[in-house]
């Protein structure tokens, strides 16, 4: 074999090898994307690498991070949850109303979590036990939760929340200075909370038997059943987790905004949630995904929006890019499975 032909063979075989290596590690794509984007933005976008902006991005992860974690659990198990963003409003308005009425924090927080779990349980029962189609079920729950929130508040915002609640969840702790930042900048509690929950639920998903059961259920339900996995219970639990995450998001957002409204999170953000999860390596066919990948997927999207806002670029171009990236990643997922 000549040197030229040997070189050609080597090049030809290295591309699929690299492809297979990346395919086996889907969480790496968002990590690489995020790191590359962060470096580019830090070098080209004024104020992007400023500590205040870094903490701003970190805090914004707390807005959608919990919903993305919940979506990852559901999608790994082979489902989808379109209702989470309206459940946030439903949980928020009820919890906030109780807080205002009682002037205490805990019962309201508990209610937010409970309402999130109840909606999650409704989804779980319908999908896992009644074998209804997840898309239709959660689409219906989405409408129910939205209608409930509007009916409950008569479309009026709930305000006058206890200071203790706002101060706790919207606080910034561990002030620090870095680079050109003159004043110390605190770390948002919302960011810390989402990081802790991501680590805990990421560990459960990737390192425990229960997590393996979720993957197997999503990858092949029949095989999972034959293997002795209680598929219905597994699926049901993932929707409850997603509901609980909506409840926590309700707390974070209500505290951050100082009010609970029926339009806290709108349908356009559902695309961000699904995009972050899919970019993070989850497959719409189930059995794939990771919390690590999802969080980096969300980081990528958040940095993109932030950089465009800093640059003054039209937010609609950001939407086009997000949509294009989502289609490209879904396309990659299709290629990966072939």
């Amino acid at each position: 074999m000549s040197d030229a032909s040997r070189s050609l063979v080597t090049r030809d075989s290295s591309v699929p090898r690299l492809w297979h290596w990346f395919s086996a590690r889907p969480a790496l794509l968002p990590v690489v994307l995020s790191v590359v984007m962060a470096v580019i933005f830090a070098l080209t976008v004024p104020n992007f690498a400023d500590l205040r902006n870094i903490m701003n991005i970190f805090g914004q992860l707390g807005f959608l991070g919990f919903l993305c974690i919940g979506m990852t659990y559901v999608m790994v198990a082979g489902g989808i949850d379109l209702s989470s963003y309206t459940v946030v409003s439903a949980a928020a308005v009820v919890g906030a109303t109780v807080m205002v009425a009682t002037e205490t924090t805990l019962p309201g927080c508990f209610l937010m979590l409970l309402i999130g779990c109840v909606f999650g349980a409704i989804n779980g029962v319908a999908v896992a036990y009644l074998r209804m189609i997840p898309f239709i079920v959660t689409l219906s729950t989405m409408v129910v939760a939205e209608g409930f929130a509007i009916w409950f508040t008569q479309a009026q915002s709930v305000y006058g929340l206890p200071d203790a609640f706002i101060d706790t969840f919207s606080a910034r702790v561990f002030p620090m200075t870095l680079g050109i930042t003159a004043r110390p900048v605190g770390t948002p509690v919302a960011g810390i909370m989402v990081l802790m929950v991501a680590l805990a639920l990421g560990f459960v998903l990737s390192r425990t038997i229960y997590g393996r059961r979720i993957y197997l259920t999503g990858a092949n339900e029949e095989t999972a059943r034959v293997s002795g996995i209680k598929v219905r219970q597994v699926k049901f639990a993932t929707y409850v987790v997603a509901g609980a995450m909506a409840g926590i998001t309700a707390m974070i957002l209500t505290a951050d905004l100082g009010t609970a409204t029926t339009a806290m999170v709108r349908d356009v953000r559902l695309m961000d949630i699904i995009a972050a999860t899919v970019i993070g390596g989850a497959s719409l066919r189930g059995g794939k995904g990771s919390i690590l990948g999802t969080m980096f997927g969300l980081l990528f999207l958040t940095m993109l929006s932030n950089a465009f806002n800093l640059l003054g670029v039209s937010p609609f171009i950001a939407m086009v890019i997000k949509g294009t990236v989502l289609v490209a990643v879904i396309g990659l997922d299709v290629l990966r499975t072939k």
């Binding site: 701003n56 339009a263 999170v265 953000r269 929006s305 932030n306």
Partner: peptide, 13 residues
């Protein structure tokens, strides 16, 4: 896009 949380994020940016 009429998203209250997004408006808060935009203002932060």
């Amino acid at each position: 896009d009429m998203d209250v949380a997004k408006q808060a994020s935009d203002a932060n940016d």
